[in-house]
Design a protein around this nucleic acid. Sequence first.
DNA 1: GTGAAAGCGCTAACAC
DNA 2: GTGTTAGCGCTTTCAC
Lengths: 354, 354
Amino acid sequence: MTRGTARGGASPTPRSVDVARLAGVSQKTVSRVFNDEQYVSADVRRRVLDAAEELGYRRNNAARALASGRTRSIGVVTLGTALYGPASLLMGVERVVRETGYALRVVNTVEGDPAGVAGAVNSLLDQGVDGIVISEPIDEQAAGDEGALRVDVPVLVLGAPSPVAAPTVLTAGHGVDLAARAATEHLLDLGHATVHHLAGPQAWYAARDRLDGWRAALAAHGRKAPPVVEGDWSAASGYAAGRELAADDDVTAVFAANDDMAIGLIRALTEAGRRVPHDVSVVGFDDVPVAAYVTPPLTTMPQRFDAVARAGLTRLVHAIEHPDAAPLPASEPPVDLIVRASTAPPPSRPGPAG
Amino acid sequence: MTRGTARGGASPTPRSVDVARLAGVSQKTVSRVFNDEQYVSADVRRRVLDAAEELGYRRNNAARALASGRTRSIGVVTLGTALYGPASLLMGVERVVRETGYALRVVNTVEGDPAGVAGAVNSLLDQGVDGIVISEPIDEQAAGDEGALRVDVPVLVLGAPSPVAAPTVLTAGHGVDLAARAATEHLLDLGHATVHHLAGPQAWYAARDRLDGWRAALAAHGRKAPPVVEGDWSAASGYAAGRELAADDDVTAVFAANDDMAIGLIRALTEAGRRVPHDVSVVGFDDVPVAAYVTPPLTTMPQRFDAVARAGLTRLVHAIEHPDAAPLPASEPPVDLIVRASTAPPPSRPGPAG
DNA sequence: GTGAAAGCGCTAACAC
DNA sequence: GTGTTAGCGCTTTCAC
């Protein structure tokens, strides 16, 4: 009935008892050594480590999780897209999670699934995680009462308010409207009478945040907000929007909610004979790697994905490990526009260089 | 001493025994129902499900893993970059892993860590996984003997030969040189005397594969391969390469190993007064979302990330679940160039349209 | 400083 | 169809 234990032939994967036997100590001592507990003499520690090395011992994580009640892993709910923003954020999350000694489990929300985020969180809870990161959730039709999730681990929501109820809910990267505001103000400062906005899909909080920031900037300068054009983050949608905006001579400056749309927009403008930035200025958002190399090089607002991930996860891990302590304070990284060649003063009002 | 069991006050997380008690059956029956085993009457199944629902029961995954010896999760080793290719592949892997009922664990290789892939695989093995996917590994200095990993689960390597030894090693997406070959041939067919290559970093197998495909196409047409320029996948490196190539009048066609570099390349060419595609034709690789919207719209070779992930994982899961059966045969998706506006016949030799 | 005993919550074999 | 009995390999008391 013994399963996995040596039985004559080939060597099976070793257990901590095997290490203990070889080192001439108790199994508990092996456990002590591997958990870096105190009260183990240097000599014993050495012997245990040597024995483990010799046997090729590896702790069984399932057994640890079962006995301790902690899985030492964090789950992240993502959108399943290779879009620059979400993908960068995920990579940032992975790095920080690994650095803090946790393992990372990933689940994408299923496109078109009404359960959406709730379903993904549920699956993470099934798998067993000590904490959950929800990255850039988008709106879903509210799941019915049956969808009312009992999340009993701390949750960190990146770039949006929380879609779930949990004992501890933290948020980070949710003040981007400052960035959108700064982007819009850059255009206003250049002398443009107003700034049009090519928005992202409004189901995304990130898109709504940017819309709000744009509106705020306009309001602060006493300008009226022109009608919003909405895209879906893709260059294709930016292109479509560009054909529309190109027809309107009042358009001299556009703030696009991401770089891909800005690139599509510029292409449509150019094709329609409206030169960028001579006739129309365009500001993007994200600073994708190609932004500096498209024609014209794009003025854009970079995002600090790593900083956001780090700030958020530091607080999540704190909440996991000190459930009763007060949560750590939030901190948002500063914003800084990168000015390249897609923005200039409006045509009717000659710029400094002629 | 009982931990987690009800003790008067608040309701703790319920166990399968609790469900069994409430449903009036044995604990084993609860297990049967949740594992969809046969030989449970519809009536009993209903009662168990109701009881579980009422209690908010959720199977403990650690206990399942410990008792069964299977973790029901697959680990993936990635590069930690938001580059379009690797990120798309990761998303494809996530989708397929989820569809097959496994959970996904993600570990990035640490930049600059000599242990590299081995370290990442090791960490996955510590966490406990039933199979491992290594996505687009790059060359590392060979880890010493101490790095000789004993991997005892099936491994799938995407886009490269395997860097580790394991009982079952599968590969997929490793025949891309056909795609590179087709891209080069498109240029040759247009009438270009030869085709220059802007290669990716040669530590990447993907980059070497494309280089090989390019060489093969040239050889098949009896052309000599001009010197290779190497970039690092970024638009910035493409730009640098472009300044170099622009100076050489013999350059009339360039095959870039990815779209980002192609975009940077085109920018440098344009700035140097060499029009694309009139003077120089450029073909990219990947078909990034903005490819159709840059100036000029890019002719490029799309990659079938989802298809590669699906084909590979189907075989990995098969190997996990039928360790003794013969591995499933590999199948590579077909390649199809997308011709847009960055390629044309060479200037010296007028094209069909004049 | 170290060890013995008792589970953690489930699945695996086997009986009935 | 259903229940009984043993563990899975650790961590956690609590002794010594």
